[in-house]
Computed example of a mutant assay.
Amino acid sequence: MNMRIGYGWDSHAFKAGVPLKIGGVSIEHPEGLAGHSDGDVLLHAITDALLGAVSAGDIGSFFPPGDPRWKGADSAIFLNLALEEIQNAGYRIVNVDTTLVLAAPKISPIAGELREHVAQLLDVKPSAVSIKAKTPEGLNADHVAQAHAVVLLEKVEDPSELKSMSEVIESQKQLEDVVRDLVSQVHGSPLERKKTFDTEDIT
Rank of each mutant, 00 (worst) to 15 (best):
K106D: 15
N140G: 13
V178T: 12
L121P: 00
L139T: 07
L114I: 04
D181T: 15
I77H: 03
E167L: 12
P65W: 00
P136Y: 09
L33W: 11
D177H: 07
M165Q: 13
K173G: 14
L79K: 04
T99Q: 07
N140D: 14
V183E: 09
G32W: 02
V54R: 05
R69T: 11
G6P: 03
A149V: 00
G138W: 00
V144R: 02
H12D: 01
V118K: 00
M3W: 13
D58E: 13
L81T: 09
V183H: 05
G8N: 02
L139A: 13
Y91I: 07
V178M: 06
T196K: 12
T98S: 12
G90H: 09
E84A: 13
S171D: 14
V96N: 03
V124T: 15
I107V: 14
A49R: 06
P109G: 00
E113H: 11
S184F: 10
V144G: 01
H36M: 10
R92L: 12
K125C: 11
I93F: 06
V178H: 00
L152Q: 13
V118A: 05
S37G: 15
G24L: 06
A149T: 11
G35V: 06
V124F: 09
G72A: 03
D48C: 10
W70Y: 15
